[in-house]
């Protein structure tokens, strides 16, 4: 019996992108449950009860039966994942969350902060296919954390900011947007919460922001990732991870 939103995937490629960031491709029919860029998958790292919870991952690219995702080794779960071999199986819940709604007209600005960069790539490809002009701003801590710059260059102009100035512009993604007078009608962003908050404050309208949270389940059952918005309480895993910039509650 086929299990809805769920499938067993086979690892087909593993590439190390930086000292602690990996790109993994997995193959499986359940890819069909993905409807929008910016949705996520939730991976059972092992068959055993350790680690217990699944690990949610954003999707960098998806094809008919393949998903590419990128992760950083931050703890035991991702460490085990990084040591998996091609051919090993992964139990995944697929097509979770609302995802981005690509707007088919005007100029688009993609903003990726650190490990928030991956989902912007699939979104950018889809926007480009819709004939939308795409500009990308990427923010990383240091130059050695940078990845995917070349891929985004295929979509349009790319500006990179690093906090220490070791590559590209020194400063935040917003510093770059302002310095370069980047023009856009709609923007899409994924990255650390302070970055998303700064964007929502600076550009209140026409933004779609992808949030991250510690999740128990990833499909709306545990209420572990609830957040308050101007349009009501939302679960990051179901009514998110994408929130509209004008519904985010601005702190302070």
């Amino acid at each position: 019996m086929e299990k809805y939103l769920s499938g067993i995937f086979t690892i087909t490629t593993i590439n190390q992108l930086t000292s602690d960031v990996y790109e993994m491709t997995i193959k499986g029919e359940a890819t069909k449950y993905i409807t929008n860029p910016g949705q996520f998958i939730n991976i059972k790292i092992n068959d055993s009860k350790e680690p217990y919870l699944r690990r949610p991952m954003s999707i960098a690219r998806y094809f008919d039966d393949k998903i590419v995702f990128i992760f950083r080794v931050v703890g035991e779960g991702t460490k085990i994942l990084s040591k998996k071999k091609v051919g090993e199986k992964l139990d995944c819940l697929v097509g979770l969350g609302n995802g981005f709604t690509p707007v088919g007209n005007g100029k688009a600005l993609l903003i990726g902060g650190g490990l928030g960069t991956p989902p912007m790539y699939e979104l950018g490809l889809q926007l480009k296919q819709m004939g939308v002009e795409v500009t990308t701003v990427l923010g990383f801590g240091t130059s050695d954390q940078l990845f995917y710059e070349d891929k985004f260059k295929e979509l349009g102009p790319v500006f990179v900011a690093t906090m220490d100035g070791s590559y590209g512009y020194k400063g935040t993604v917003i510093d770059v947007i302002k310095q370069e007078n980047v023009e856009f009608d709609n923007y899409y962003a994924c990255g650390p919460e302070p970055m998303l908050m700064a964007l929502a404050k600076t550009y209140r309208q026409n933004g779609q922001l992808s949030y991250e949270a510690r999740m128990g389940c990833g499909f709306g059952a545990c209420m572990g990732c609830s957040c308050e918005t101007l349009t009501g309480d939302k679960r990051i895993c179901v009514e998110g991870p994408i929130l509209r910039s004008d519904e985010v509650i601005i702190d302070g």
């Binding site: 009860k49 350790e50 680690p51 217990y52 949270a213 209420m223 572990g224 609830s226 957040c227």
Partner: peptide
């Protein structure tokens, strides 16, 4: 799900952590 008289939003995030073969939650009766 636990129900109270009035609506409750529950606790601030993070509400979830992990441990050996288990999880820690503090939803706060949302």
């Amino acid at each position: 799900k636990a129900t109270t008289l009035e609506p409750r939003f529950g606790n601030p995030l993070p509400r979830i952590a992990e441990g050996p073969s288990g999880m820690l939650n503090a939803i706060g009766l949302q």
